[in-house]
Design a protein around this nucleic acid. Sequence first.
DNA 1: CCCCCCCC
Length: 665
Amino acid sequence: MSYKLSEGALEVIMNGGRYDKPVMQILGNKKIQGSGANERFRLLVSDGKHSLSFAMLATQLNDKLKTGELSDYSVVQVDRFITSIIKPNAEKRVMILLEITILAPGSEVGKKLGNPQTWTEDSAHAPSQAVTPAPQANPRPAPIVKPTSNQQLDSSMLSSQMTHPIASLSPYQNKWVIKARVMNKSAIRTWSNARGEGKLFSMDLCDDSGEIRATAFKNECDKFYDMIEVDKVYYISRCILKPANKQFTSLKNDYEMTFTADTVVSECVEDASTVPSVKFDFVPISEIANRSPDSLLGPGFESQCTNVFFEFQFTYVHLSDVLTVKENMQRCNLHISEKKFKDMCDVNPHVACRVDYGLITSKVDMIGVCKSAADVQELTAKSTGRLLKKREVTLVDSSGAAITLTLWGNEAEKFDGSTNPVIAAKGARLTEFNGSKSLSCLSSTMVRLNPDLPETHRLRGWYDNGGADCDIVNISARSGAYGGGSGEWVTFAEAEARQLGAGERGDYFCLLGALTFTFSDNAVYKACPQEQCNKKLIDQENGLYRCEKCNREYPNYKYRLLLGANVSDPTGDQRVTAFNEAAESILGKTAAEIGQMFEYDKAAYSQLFEEVKFKTFVFKFRTKMETYSDEARLKTIVMSATPVDYKDANARLVKSIKALSGVEL
DNA sequence: CCCCCCCC
């Protein structure tokens, strides 16, 4: 096997010329600095004619060295690279390898190819610089720095085309100019903490090589905030680069930029179209209903979902969820320290506790027409005590479905839904609450009103020509607390076929069914009078009642219900449990009344449970598979039970008959 | 130098 290197390529490249996808041999590597995110390797590369030690590997390729994939003597095709002058006065040029394809592993090649001579800076100025482009296998020009002659990279170049790809930026070169489009711009945010106070805004930039977050603090915040506009293209230079904290960004870059007093920004007006715009991957609203919301999933989840990103973030969970969290983390090969886990478990189980763990945030790109918009609501975040402003807008599309999108802060306040604008959102967070899905904006979510996209025009046409009046299924509809509602009715057979309850978080469904049995024994109990605590009290037989959870005795108590029952429909039946409020609506009396009956009128008490048998309700259930002594069983909880609204029930019946028979009634 | 993404 012979390997053909691109002889003479280094000469062209190191003279600032173009060379498309040169084939080179790796002759050695050396770690030059740092560790972790700052680690960087210097390479000795050869094109068979020259060898160059002023070559560096882009950090995102470090793993190829560490795993041994890129061993000495490997023959590689350099798919993308840049050169950069690191000492402007001395004209010291380095080559940075950004993307490579390994054509042959070092073990297979086994030797140095040819007899390369060491490339020196002197060679760079040798008269023999025949910058004849070598034969190009691929005519697409490599995105490299164009010849610089003796120019320094400074602000005088802002109007020229000499720019660096974002993917090539690193803390180790500071002479660069990027030409980037603003994908997203935050509001100005202020902070005040032990280290001081200030304000900032940040923006997400992209070009055809990649993306990067840039932040402007204090003076720079004031200086650039008004100038920076979303979707515009700017030449930007002289920022500081530092490793990105992956905990807080989902942008694909190891670094982020900070504006400094020297930062130069100028708008690119002439050929901005060469810089790509934000790419959306719209999901029809009806399809969002089938997407996985935020969740903790087992191994293999990647294949089940698309648009799923892994984020490490602070989240509030209840202690009952913590064990599941830990199991899931282990299964997903995430790790949590024992101390942190213990800290979590030490927290009062009734208080949401702060833990950090890997959470799968489900993000979706969607576009829809704003059919309606609620007023701005103010609320105080339980977790942080912050005052928040939100606005829920209902979006529809031609898939015949509607979904709620929550806007926050400034975006919520300035939004005007009166003209039914088209809204496109990239990276909206898909969440599920009480069995219905909705979208919420994150700071990273890109929201565009009436963007100039084909989809916008298509939707506008659809909406203005009848779409506005179409029958729409709202996948964010609250079938919640008071049950029934517009949620789809499922039979027990369908629930089984759909494997409801098999997921980690349980599933919600509505069902029309009859109570075939109620368990009256122990259906009412004396509970701890503390508002949040519903623990069953132990009668001390001395007029006092003891709560094990609160670890104290009380002279008083409140009655609560815990009703076991069987529910049947024509396709099957299910043992269910109804807690206090749901049990009250089934039995038609309050827990206090039922407690009194239990105490003073046993006959009436028994009668109550008899009478309710065979009553029909629209139930809303939450069901989840649980394991009791090695036996898997569905645990089904009644979220609500409401009397049948026969007008609604008949409408559903008619609809399903139509669907089954194809006959218009 | 921020790092919150919330509520029912």
